[in-house]
Simulated assay, not measured.
Amino acid sequence: MKILDTLSLGALGIRVRRARAGLSALGISIGIATMIVVTAVPASSQADLMRQLSALGTNLLQVTAVPDQDPPARIPESAVAMVSRIQPVTEVSAVGNTHTPVRRNAEIAADANPDLAVLAAAPGLMPAVGGSLAAGHWLDPGLPTTVLGARTAARLGITSLDHAPLVTIGSTEFAVVGLLEPVALTPDLDYAALVGWPVATHTLGFDGHPTALYVRSVEAQLEAVRSVLATTVAPERPGDVTVSRPSDALAAKRATQQNFSVLFLGLAGVALVVGGIGVANTMVISVLERRAEIGLRRALGATRGQIRSQFLTESVMLAGLGGLAGTLLGVLATAGYASWNGWPVVIPAAAALAGVIGAVAVGVLAGLYPAVRASRLTPTVALAST
């Protein structure tokens, strides 16, 4: 019997018994949809949690000079360039303390705000520290402009940029072009007035040595990057610098990823087993109800192999239809629920693929016993049972 004939014969049982076939397909589609939902909804929730944990600086390291050394420890001027050559490093920037006072105008004493620092900012500072502007724009490195941290702006009484405010840094007036939101990962920047690196060197007498480096790397390689940072920053005197340890949030993020992976596998397995039992039950009942049909086909010359093929094909088609419907239903349900919660919609490719392939595999396994049982019926026994 040709393949097309086998497929047509397998589909015949589904077409003739539409209600039973529909209910059977519904059973496995619910199982597959459940598998998609119980894997994709936690995956979407996990993606949102990972996003929140990443905002806590899970891949951020900070390098600073060791304080109170004689002679004073200094980070080399070439440190940013050297660290950027480390392959897993994705972003690196720096600030340097100019040791210059900042005040609202020249009429105020220079030592009026001793806890406010004027920092030279290297390119890429905001992405490296996860900072953002509350108003205005970023620095023009070559011009006397400044961006104020949240606490600095409040201390100087600057709440908006409507009237092009000016501040005095050292003996030079700087235009305030931006105000920062509070920087959660590096709160020291809240008490800073940031200026461009070139203008700090030419106007404020800055020596060009960074006081802090901010390094982001691929999370999986964070420990490896940390182990070489000191020797990369200060190869001649690595003891002059300290490197922060990875954030505790990184350990929490990795533990969460591992636990979610185990949960996904367990739930997916249970859903497939439940769907398989439903298909097996349907096919066994189908064999019992269709004994007369089997006997008639055997009497007309159908071989045992053809009987097995017929019922196995019907089982696989039934499971496949249920798998396709269940996968679509699971994807739509997950997308709706994740969007309602404001999560990114994540449909694991493995779960979606397993929805169809798993359903077909379940159909083969669930239909194997009923198909073999049907093929073993002799024509006389099958016809006598009607």
Rank of each mutant, 00 (worst) to 15 (best):
A268I: 02
G239V: 00
T6I: 14
N259P: 01
I32L: 09
G10S: 11
L267G: 11
S286P: 04
G336C: 06
S24K: 11
R290D: 00
L125P: 02
V233G: 13
N105A: 10
W197A: 07
N113K: 06
A120H: 06
M50N: 12
P71A: 08
L328K: 00
L125D: 02
A175L: 11
A106C: 10
S385V: 01
D188Y: 00
T378S: 10
A175M: 09
Q310F: 05
V233R: 11
L139Y: 10
I285G: 00
L312M: 14
L180E: 02
V176S: 08
M50D: 11
T380L: 15
V262K: 13
A200W: 08
V345S: 09
A164E: 05
L204R: 05
A154S: 15
D111T: 08
M35L: 14
E77H: 10
A382F: 04
P42M: 01
T34H: 03
G142M: 07
T172G: 04
T100D: 06
S385T: 02
S84K: 14
V102K: 13
L185H: 13
M35E: 05
L300V: 01
L133N: 03
P246E: 05
T39S: 15
V273P: 03
A65K: 06
A106Q: 12
I307V: 11
L7T: 00
D111Y: 08
G330L: 04
G239Y: 01
V199L: 10
A252F: 15
A112W: 06
L119M: 15
V92Y: 15
I28F: 12
S339F: 01
A366G: 11
G142C: 01
A234N: 14
P114F: 00
V89I: 02
R304I: 01
V118H: 12
T145A: 14
M50T: 06
A153Y: 13
R15Q: 07
D70N: 10
S286W: 12
P379A: 06
Q306F: 13
Y337D: 00
R103F: 02
K2V: 00
P210F: 13
N97E: 12
A25D: 04
A350L: 13
R226N: 03
D188F: 03
V167W: 12
S45N: 12
S286Q: 10
A268P: 08
Q62S: 09
G149P: 03
V37Y: 03
A212P: 03
D140N: 13
T380R: 13
A65D: 06
Q306D: 12
G363W: 14
V345A: 07
V102C: 13
L161I: 04
A40D: 03
